Computed example of a mutant assay.
Amino acid sequence: MFGPTEPAAVALQQAAEERGFVVAWAPTDLPSFVVSRYRNWVEDMRQAGMGQLARNIEVRLNPSSRLAWARSALVLAAPHGFPDPGPPPGGVRIGRVGRIFWVREQDYIQRRVQPHLDELKEICHRLGGRCRDYVEQGPLSFRSYGVLAGLGWIGRNGMLINQHLGSYMTLAVLLTSFELADASEHPFRCGRCKLCVESCPTGALIGDGTLDANRCISYWTTQHLDLIPFKFRESLGDWLFGCDECQSVCPWSPEASRFWEGYEPDPDLAHPDLTDFLVLSNHAFAQKYAQSAFERVGRPRMARNALVVLANTRDSGYLPLVRLGCEDPSPLVRATAAWACVRLGGRKDAERLLSDPELLVRDEARRALELG
């Protein structure tokens, strides 16, 4: 790692560390190979339906083009390697959820992380510097800055990996006007290991530190708006929302023991009751899962995911629950339910959907019955 040359910047770093962040500094200019790799990734359409990743590329890859005063990036990492809170009693809790979604999303970013960033910006200004903050949803290439800062390296799973924290980190960046010493990137430490590539159920990992989001379980379950393609449904297995396969098999991922104090994993998010997504009204769902990533995507898409998980069990005992999806007000849910019913032996339920008023549902039921 390397650091700032100005005492004011040192003071800013100390203030960030006092707030529990793992901190490192990077220059604002990304290496040319990082820029070209990102451009090629977008040109190959590997961002799938996440159009935001293809917008404002000039700012994403060169923030100085808009903020001419920016000289350095203070990279802040909040570890989220917290332990499993365990499932609450009762319910159908068979779907896995990516670890980062175990916390109330808006709670930890807006109420936990953002206040610290606001305080750090104010400290920066008092120290005579200029500052601009970005967290995960911002336009910057966080992982690339993490590498430049010496915080870690981009593994074959596409994640920023730290030797002590693994890849379970939420990243934020403060662009500052402070000058830095020379950069020193973190060396690549994956060696010959390809466990993440080999364990990816859909073959989404390219192996060069990038992934094809068109094949990523996390993309299909958390970002995609419509039906999940037939060819990926079985590969989703029991992943309800997100996917941690490539992180959990990584030898650098530590036992869940170190996490930022702002994180409070919620058992109902780590182990949700799939019944909720097929029984609750949209309003009741929004109330129960307020400020979570589940609320962000909405009940119909969570019901879609739940039906895929239930169908992949091949357990006909779940057919009564799946049948509820056939009566759902959302065509997306009814269409997915047709396929799930066939998988669990409920062909007659799917046949009834052949007369559904929505073409999407009729087509999906027909195809599910043809494929068996």
Rank of each mutant, 00 (worst) to 15 (best):
M1W: 13
F2V: 00
F2I: 03
Q13M: 05
F21M: 09
V22G: 03
V22E: 10
T28Q: 06
T28A: 10
V35P: 00
R37P: 01
R37Y: 02
G49A: 01
L53W: 15
L61Q: 13
L61Y: 10
N62G: 15
A78M: 14
P79N: 05
P79G: 12
D84G: 06
R99L: 10
R99N: 07
R99H: 09
Q106E: 14
D107I: 04
Q110W: 07
R111E: 07
I123D: 08
I123R: 11
R126T: 12
D133N: 07
G138W: 03
P139N: 07
R143T: 15
R143P: 01
G150R: 09
L151R: 13
I161M: 12
I161G: 00
H164V: 14
T170E: 00
T170L: 08
L171R: 00
V173Y: 03
F178S: 11
E179A: 15
S184E: 15
S184L: 12
C196W: 04
S199Y: 05
G209D: 00
N214V: 08
N214K: 14
R215E: 07
W220N: 02
Q223Y: 09
I228C: 09
P229M: 06
E234K: 08
D238P: 03
R258M: 09
F259E: 04
W260Q: 05
Y263N: 06
Y263I: 02
P265I: 05
D266V: 14
D276W: 13
D276Q: 13
K288I: 03
Y289E: 06
S292H: 01
G298K: 05
M302R: 10
N312V: 05
G317Q: 08
G317W: 01
P320T: 06
R323T: 13
L324C: 07
E327M: 09
P329C: 04
P331C: 05
R343S: 10
G345V: 12
R347E: 14
D349Q: 11
R352K: 11
R362W: 00
L369H: 08
